[in-house]
Design a protein around this nucleic acid. Structure first.
Length: 257
DNA sequence: ATGGCAATGTTTCATTGA
């Protein structure tokens, strides 16, 4: 089974990219973030025609997440949001897919260290951790994917000195991500040898991609019970080269069945 | 030189993202 995650920065704009990508990468699961589309306008029919059932929760303009699952792959127990956590923003959708609990998250950006949005981000990550810890008890085979908006280490940052202490890289955010991992989740990307300068997001400005100035902020976290089945985790950097790309590239994890 | 891009709705700017 292959599980991919991709912040598409508007599914309305990126639907052709997604359909094209799925045709070339017929993964069992594609988790999307920043769909920016209300549920009654979600392009479910187009995706179904491409062979994928969509499970989604969204809102206009901001946020919005989806799990696209191949029609032949069983999916059940769809849950939206973090149960018990009061939040107007649509950032989480989960499903049990072929025996694996898959959680798709869009962690808040945080805007700037010390801002209200930063406080919300830390509160949100804490709630996510508590909820995932309980989920892990019920679902030992757990995979949490998405845009975490945190670069875990300096090697995940093109210019660590310039980013030191900034939002996405601050100590409190890194601690919050480590706390999530501490419940029993491993960063699948780091289970394998990776080229230096591997990133998942590049700023649209300043020729960020062309200059290799990026961050690794999109992640696949795997529980102990499924970790040994994970055989690869890669970034599809080529997608960022395309015309009118998302500023994020897809991340793909492969699991032996 | 500390900007720069892209998407969206409140649209011809302001807001947000990262």
């Amino acid at each position: 089974m292959r599980i991919a995650t991709w912040n598409v920065n508007s599914l309305n704009v990126r639907l052709p990219h997604v359909l094209d990508w799925l045709e070339r990468n017929p993964v069992e699961v594609l988790a999307l973030q920043e769909t920016k589309v209300a549920d009654d306008r979600f392009p479910a029919a187009e995706l179904e025609a491409a062979g994928y059932r969509a499970h989604f929760i969204g809102q206009k303009t901001y946020n919005g997440v989806a799990l696209l699952v191949r029609l032949a792959t069983p999916a059940s127990a769809i849950v939206a949001d973090i149960p018990g956590f009061e939040d107007d923003q649509k950032r989480v959708v989960s499903a049990t897919i072929d025996g694996v609990r898959v959680v798709c998250v869009y962690v808040p950006n945080g805007q700037a260290v010390g801002s209200d949005k930063y406080a919300y981000k830390l509160r949100w990550m804490s709630a996510l951790k508590d909820w995932l810890a309980a989920e892990l008890v019920v679902h030992p085979k757990l995979v949490v994917v998405g845009d975490f908006n945190v670069a875990p280490e300096d090697r995940d940052v093109h210019d660590p000195a310039a980013w030191e202490g900034q939002v996405l890289c601050s100590a409190a955010e890194r601690d919050a991500l480590r706390a999530i991992e501490s419940i029993g989740l491993a960063d699948a990307f780091r289970l394998f040898e990776q080229p230096p300068g591997s990133f998942t997001w590049w700023d649209y400005r300043m020729l960020g991609f062309q200059k290799g100035r990026g961050l690794r902020i999109d992640h696949v976290l795997v529980s102990d019970a499924i970790r040994s089945a994970c055989t690869a985790c890669t970034v599809d950097r080529d997608e960022r080269k395309k015309k009118q790309p998302s500023d994020h590239a897809p991340v793909i994890a492969t699991f032996a069945s």
